[in-house]
Design a protein around this nucleic acid. Structure first.
Lengths: 148, 148
DNA sequence: GCTATATACTTGATTAGTCAATTAATCATC
DNA sequence: GATGATTAATTGACTAATCAAGTATATAGC
């Protein structure tokens, strides 16, 4: 077997790291909020009017259109998000963060911060900056404002 | 909404980045090899005797024991890996890389390297080093040898 | 050397996601 | 303003994973 480049090795590990983190979040986030739910709620909270077109939300979290439909279904059912029609475009339906969704997000947020910092100690600021740069390479547009 | 730490933001993006990359690999790897298959074949190739206990393989790629059983099933069927019993422990069954699996790995490897380097240009060596460090924080033991 | 506990693996039931096809609305152009 | 192409969303059929339970083996303590 040939030797492997650093780039490819990172990719091989990325899946593993991601699975690891996601599981940790799912276990510890509490309140019945899974990692995906949390991400959805967070992205919605950052939008003006706390609502998004379903298709934009899908792209933001790298899911397919049908994936978003199915992910949102149970969240609608328990009232974390609601559905709102567009006045301008009959095809579009918005996902809107409900007050209940907002409350749940607030609760889960502290927990998520705690977990994230446990995984990536803040002493590693330089590496964190580089990691952010790399993600920017992918031209993902992170929403929200970054603090130290 | 409070502002979000860099650490948590990275986590939120990690899932997205990972999904993005995996999709790209699945599309372009060719030979009917999915990203997961590739990772499995690679890890096996790095082991002495090119075989592993199923449970160790599961942990290496952050899957559950049943996840590995189900992932390997079609790979066994098409002959990429084979099953081998342990002489010392009747519970254990090894997964072994077959010659066919080896050939397929060789073929997919070039392609995977190409894709990985397209995503992470090698000019970014310092950032790549940091990224590697961060992954080491998670105490994943990457197998294989790193080149430039 | 029995009994209890732990480990490796598989299986059934379920959950999350994909893709392909469909419906409905919008946009573009002639 | 009719026709054709594009876009947003949902649905059906499927794949990939999970967890919980079950089976078989191994280990530890008495």
């Amino acid at each position: 077997m040939k030797s492997i480049s650093k780039q490819l090795k990172i990719f091989l590990n990325l899946a593993t790291v991601q699975a690891h983190i996601e599981r940790s979040f799912n276990i510890g986030l509490g309140n019945g909020v899974g990692f995906n739910d949390f991400v959805i709620l967070y992205h919605l909270s950052q939008e003006s009017g706390q609502k998004m077109r379903r298709i934009d939300l899908a792209e933001k979290v790298s899911l397919s259109a049908s994936g978003i439909t199915r992910l949102l279904l149970p969240m609608e059912k328990i009232g974390l998000v609601s559905r709102e029609e567009s006045k301008n475009d009959g095809r579009v339906s918005f996902v809107k963060l409900t007050p209940a969704g907002n409350r749940l997000l607030e609760e889960a947020f502290e927990n998520a911060e705690y977990k994230a910092k446990a995984f990536l100690p803040s002493t590693d600021i330089r590496a964190l900056n580089d990691l952010s740069e790399i993600f920017n390479l992918f031209s993902f547009k992170p929403s929200g404002q970054i603090i130290s």
